[in-house]
Design a protein around this nucleic acid. Structure first.
Lengths: 136, 136
DNA sequence: TCATACTGTAACTTTTATTATTACAGAACA
DNA sequence: TGTTCTGTAATAATAAAAGTTACAGTATGA
């Protein structure tokens, strides 16, 4: 995955949870995150694609959760949000003439997949509701 | 952590394992990875700092493992290599006037720490020897 | 029905992070 | 004592991320 996508998505989902079905627009959300509204809209588009949020266009529009917070699992959010592998996945091309170089990418991918699955498994133990309850 | 550090470190350690105590210089290693030798030397400096490798300066110098491969645990390597948190850890400063923004960084860090620990725990089940044996 | 306030998306710019390059002092060797 | 390394710093080039601007399309309501 990449840096801030997961953070931004969780921030968005938490806000949407806290306002209980009220529509929030991208500018408001961006104000809480302190980032650009377009970035929020892109992140919302992805959350929408994966069924976590619903949006309403036009005046008075905005977004809201598409599921109950207890049914949004952070492992699922992670998977929806991740774009690249967590570790590695660089464009580096090791030397194919070296026995190690030839196989390292494959071996690392295997290792990283296992590790990332362990991480996802941990995240999957928690729901948005749990996360949101951690706030005062 | 950051992108390629872990990949490069594991590549280095695997090469050193494969040559059985022979000294390898940074140029040779860089040739296998297909990257700049200075990058390798920096990575080696870090591995050295954490006791995984030994280096010999001067003509005919190079690096070798400082421990037996079976005693090098990939979770430890990960921890030695990581520089930033795996997830998040951006310079973003959420809005302190928003109840969610005010606490989100702290809450995310807690979540990320748990998740990263699950990942490290998984990596810790494997040693360099195991990893290296995965190669033909 | 038209001004307004949104979303969605694309193109472009700026900023930041990563990687490569150059350079050189100091160490070991033959 | 010249050669070949490490270690490290400074700088340049490249790539990735984030911000900005722009605008078509949609809903609302005066």
């Amino acid at each position: 995955m990449n840096s801030s996508h997961f953070s931004i998505s969780l921030h968005i989902l938490t806000l949407l949870d806290k306002v209980n079905g009220q529509l929030l627009n991208s500018e408001y959300i961006a104000g809480s995150i302190n980032c650009n509204p377009v970035l929020v809209r892109k992140e919302l588009a992805n959350l929408h694609k994966h069924g976590f949020v619903q949006s309403k266009e036009g005046k008075g529009g905005g977004s809201t959760l598409a599921k109950r917070p207890a049914d949004i699992n952070l492992g699922e959010v992670y998977k929806a949000v991740k774009q690249k592998g967590l570790l590695g996945e660089s464009k580096n091309e090791p030397n194919p003439d070296c026995p190690v170089g030839k196989q390292i990418t494959q071996q690392l991918n295997k290792l990283y997949n296992d590790a990332e699955n362990a991480l996802i498994k941990d995240l999957s133990l928690k729901t948005l509701k749990d996360f949101s309850l951690g706030f005062d």
